[in-house]
Design a protein around this nucleic acid. Structure first.
Lengths: 356, 356
DNA sequence: TCGATTTTTGTAATCGATTACATCTTGAGA
DNA sequence: TCTCAAGATGTAATCGATTACAAAAATCGA
């Protein structure tokens, strides 16, 4: 009753328009969805009736009949991370062209929320799913796949070969990061991780280790700090770093935010970047252009990632391709900026001591 | 036909479950949506059939019949702005409790996209709308309101008294910003605007002007730089600032991002913050905690804003309140940090010259 | 045990569009 | 003018759930 009030102003159905135009509902429907199927004269008559009545089709009824929702679900681990916001822009730009809408599933870093979105997808509220998260469990994705839902994984290839993926070359870039630091003369390395358990983190760490090996260093010489993809992880890493005696001089962070957190914290203790410690980030978020010093990092083609991912999903939905035989791996760009530099002293800690 | 393939694996309808359990569809429906209305024995029977068949109700059909979509539309001007991401978290947290889902309408700073979301709302795809944007035209909101849709405005009171709003005290805070700068001894002020035409910008500038007047300064003594709520606006303002002869010493930016852009740019020219110029931002985004120096700014209660806004919308949808007689204005907190300080010299430009 | 009442379950209408199929127009060609 | 195919339009079934109403079953008191 109270709800009724909200819908009381306009309640025009297709039948009303049909009556107004003196035609059948079928004709009205055709005018609105199959242009060219009706005679010009009738068409105009109907359009006039639509205009006059202010009729807007009920999309729910349409969806029920056509079995198409014209909506896709995008599951992201966290919205406040600019990386996802940027990818989302790409997705949005692409989907809009096909007339599709987006429902955002924000996990907010809480994995237990996944179930909700699996349900949502399985109850046929969407025509497809775009996974920006790296750790949806094989279970959920399997359910969706078996439910017959097109899925595309962005950001990280899910451990499920039947799902097409569009990802960046995380591993290659991470390897390159070490190589770059080594070229600058660094010999002791630190790694600030991303969300433990996420595939992205896994890939980046793996690339880092490969780089260490390739540069001829021993695995046990590296320091690894764990934490999610947030500023605080970098701060915590810095605390640990500051307490060390034999500090690494080349730090690779699995995301820009933790790199920035790290730098902020160590600079507060008068440690200079890059003279005392070099830091290289990952992602290339816009913030990284405005930190001081400007962060050296890998720029992800985020917008492109979103566009390509959405495009693949559209093809899947339209049945223009089969799942499983489609994988894209986009390259990253190393932005050489001001938080990395050559090693100046073998042991700057002793230098600092004398300076104090 | 190709579409069919995607739905071929599971096609279990409520009738199938009913047959399997040896009851009518009505009973199955009741078990699933009106617990306690069926006998325990029947209930178990049905649940077993549901479990065995893997039945998941078709939400579209349910929506059509119940006339409730259990979804709300949230229109945001731009997703990459962390302010909106944070508000969205609050909205999400609140709506989830009521079992509601979210469709995000991202304008991406392009006003012409509004029409799309007005259509979406009017075609009954959502039960309500949350407006995070400050500039949806009166037209669109009027259409929605007349279409009988509950709407709540966040971030800025729309020029439409019939719409409830939950906002922060933009004007008061902006006035306080000037007061604060004046207390520090500043006499020449600069204002970096937000997106022209947005109500938020309008309010903040108005507060700024009120502050100027209250502190006893003349309106024509202030400098105003225009641009959207992005980093680049601050950078552009800095360029202009650097080219000035008689520079202001107290700068108020309508958002943190432009404040940060400004600071980054002027520091590149060896202008010291806050010794040479004080800057105060607005929003209190997380990144502002990590800039160097740490930004002085107003912290918005973003999460709370989202929660309260969602709560009001829920009440509207449930008919527990009437539109128009509900307005909330949340206070902001001034974070006194390191980009503001007392005026050191009347004319630092001459000082700099002699130092060079 | 019986009837009245309450509880549980079933039947069928309904939500508002789309669309298969049937029917009616139209226009070209004979 | 008539025939026939092509094109336009109408009728009614359909999508898959919910729910008003009816009917049946269970419960209770006398």
């Amino acid at each position: 009753m109270s709800r009724k009030r909200w819908h009381s102003v306009k309640e025009i159905r297709i039948a009303d328009v049909a009556r107004l135009a003196g035609v059948s509902t079928a004709t009205v429907s055709r005018v609105l969805s199959e242009p060219g199927k009706v005679r010009q004269k009738t068409h105009d008559l109907v359009m006039e009736a639509v205009r006059r009545s202010g009729y807007i089709p009920d999309s729910t009824a349409r969806k029920l009949r056509t079995r198409r929702t014209m909506t896709v679900l995008v599951v992201a681990p966290r919205l406040t991370n600019p990386v996802f916001a940027e990818i989302l822009r790409g997705v949005d730009d692409e989907l809009t062209q096909s007339g599709y809408g987006i429902i955002i599933g924000n996990l907010d870093n809480r994995r237990e929320r996944e179930a909700r979105y699996v349900d949502l997808a399985l109850s046929r509220q969407v025509d497809g799913v775009l996974l920006l998260t790296g750790y949806i469990p094989a279970d959920g994705t399997r359910d969706m796949r078996e439910g017959g839902l097109p899925i595309v994984a962005l950001c990280a290839a899910i451990e499920d070969d039947a799902i097409p993926s569009v990802v960046v070359q995380d591993r290659e870039a991470s390897r390159r990061a070490v190589e770059y630091l080594a070229e600058l003369g660094h010999r002791r390395f630190g790694y600030i991780s991303g969300t433990p358990g996420s595939i992205i983190e896994h890939e980046r760490f793996r690339g880092f280790c490969e780089g260490i090996a390739a540069a001829g260093f021993r695995q046990d010489e590296i320091v690894r700090w764990e934490g999610p993809f947030v500023f605080a992880t970098g701060v915590a890493a810095a605390e640990s770093f500051l307490a060390m005696k034999d500090r690494p001089t080349g730090i690779f962070a699995a995301c820009d935010e933790s790199a920035i957190g790290f730098i902020k914290r160590v600079r507060a203790e008068r440690i200079r970047v890059p003279q005392d410690v070099s830091v290289i980030g990952f992602d290339g978020i816009e913030f990284a252009d405005y930190t001081e010093p400007t962060l050296t990092t890998f720029r992800q083609p985020l917008h492109e990632l979103g566009c390509v991912g959405a495009d693949v999903l559209m093809k899947l939905i339209r049945g223009e391709m089969t799942a499983g035989d489609w994988n894209v791996r986009l390259p990253l760009t190393l932005l050489e900026r001001d938080t990395t530099g050559p090693v100046l002293h073998k042991d700057y800690t002793s230098l600092r001591r004398s300076a104090m």
